[in-house]
Computed example of a mutant assay.
Amino acid sequence: MQLTINRIDTRYVLDNEGGGPWLVFIHQLAGDLSIWDQMAGYFRNDFTVLRYDLRGHGETTVSPDSFTIDDLADDLAQLLEQLGAPSAHVVGLSIGGMVAQKFAINHAAKVESLTVVGAPAFIPEDARPTFAQRAASVRENGTASIVDATLERWLTPEFRKAHPEVTEPIGETIARTPTESFARAAEAVSRFDARDKLASVDKRTLVIAGQHDTGTPHAASKVVADTVPGARFELLNAAHLTPVEESQRFSGLLGNFLRGSS
């Protein structure tokens, strides 16, 4: 299904078998909504589950201009409004976790709870050139050139070896991401900083990090939990893609959190 959001044709999938509260999943850089397929299966009987492709990812069209993480948060607000959702539980992974933070800050009335997965509160000054370099490299060599290095950061060697049937489609999604979409999103990530407003978030918040995540070290994720009042922090035995690598533990944590049982 598609809707035009801020002049961008946006793909989304809605699972509402349970007709319950809205639950939104936001994917990672160079990913698409399919990363959440398993989680949608877990939660569709109790929630109205929304997954969508960020600008220039999956089947959502490429943004005509550069953009910020705030712009991506505004996209989500417009999507929810067009779908008639007054508010939602928001779960974001990686760049999706950055979008989720900005959404909770800029559109607080639309947030029931916030879950940030594998995302920092800000990109340090000395790390910003790394994203600029990735953008430049992809513009020159294409997204297929970063598949191997990205998978090494996203999944532990043990998981990649044991589960090629999971790993290979993720790599194919990276390679299919349009060059300019990746570059503009990476540049948006490089400018991300939510620290000045995170302490104002008054929604129930869960932060999940991977113990072996080299791209977003768990100490960087913990800053989010330490800044949002009352936030809970959980560390899983995984690299960056905790919902994939530790799916049962992840779904259990998220389910208990969403239902308010722990």
Score class of each variant (00 low, 15 high):
Leu254Thr: 12
Gln2Pro: 09
Ser181Thr: 13
Pro229Phe: 03
Gly230Asp: 09
Gly96Tyr: 05
Ala175Pro: 10
Gly84Pro: 15
Gln82Gly: 12
Gln101Phe: 08
Thr179Asp: 02
Gly142Trp: 05
Met39Trp: 06
Val111His: 02
Thr167Asp: 00
Lys203Glu: 02
Arg195Ser: 13
Met1Ala: 14
Asp70Glu: 11
Gly255Gln: 09
Val91Leu: 03
Val189Leu: 14
Ala121Gln: 05
Asn237Tyr: 09
Thr242Arg: 01
Leu93Tyr: 06
Val166Ile: 15
Ser137Trp: 14
Ala73His: 07
Phe122Pro: 02
Leu83Met: 08
Val207Thr: 08
Ala220Trp: 13
Ser137Val: 07
Ala77Cys: 15
Ala149Glu: 10
Ile5Ser: 03
Thr150His: 01
Val49Pro: 13
Gly230Ala: 10
Glu152Asp: 12
Arg44Leu: 10
Thr227Gly: 04
Leu235Asp: 03
Ala188Glu: 06
Leu80Asp: 04
Asp37Val: 13
Gly19Phe: 09
Ser87Met: 14
Asn256Trp: 14
Ser221Ala: 08
Gln28Phe: 12
Ser200Glu: 14
Val207Glu: 02
Val224Cys: 00
Pro243Cys: 06
Ile35Ala: 08
Ala188Arg: 08
Pro178Cys: 02
Asp226His: 03
Leu54Thr: 09
Phe159Cys: 04
Lys102Gln: 14
Leu254Gly: 08
Phe47Leu: 04
Gln78Trp: 13
Gly255Arg: 13
Leu23Arg: 02
Ala239Leu: 01
Leu76Ala: 07
Gly41Ser: 02
Ala220Tyr: 09
Arg128Asp: 04
Leu253Met: 11
Asp75Asn: 04
Gly92Arg: 08
Ala220Asp: 11
Met98Phe: 07
Ser251Thr: 13
Pro243Gly: 03
Asp148Ala: 12
Arg55Thr: 05
Ser247Asp: 07
Leu235Val: 12
Arg11Ser: 01
Ile174Gly: 00
Asn16Gly: 11
Leu114Asn: 01
Ala73Lys: 06
Arg7Leu: 13
Gly142Ala: 10
Gly260Ile: 15
Thr156Asp: 00
Asp9Phe: 07
Gln38Pro: 08
Thr177Phe: 02
Val49Gln: 06
Phe67Arg: 01
Pro21Tyr: 01
Ser66Arg: 08
Ala225Leu: 12
Ile95Cys: 03
Pro64Arg: 00
Leu33Trp: 05
Ala88Val: 14
Thr48Trp: 04
Leu241Thr: 11
Gln82Arg: 14
Ser200Met: 09
Arg249Ile: 14
Trp154Thr: 09
Leu79Arg: 05
Arg153Asp: 03
Asp126Pro: 04
Asp46Lys: 11
Asp213Pro: 07
Ala108Arg: 05
Leu198Thr: 04
Phe159Trp: 07
Ala185Glu: 02
Pro164Glu: 00
Asp65Cys: 12
Asp213Phe: 06
Phe103Val: 10
Ser66Ala: 10
Ile174Ala: 00
Gly58Ala: 07
Thr242Trp: 02
Asp196Ala: 15
Ala144Trp: 08
Arg11Thr: 14
Ser137Lys: 11
Ser200Arg: 13
Glu180Tyr: 07
Leu258Pro: 12
Leu80Gln: 08
Ser34Pro: 08
Ser181Tyr: 03
Ala109Leu: 09
Arg176Tyr: 00
Asn237Ser: 11
Glu140His: 02
Gly31Tyr: 00
Val99Asp: 01
Ala149Trp: 09
Ala85Asn: 06
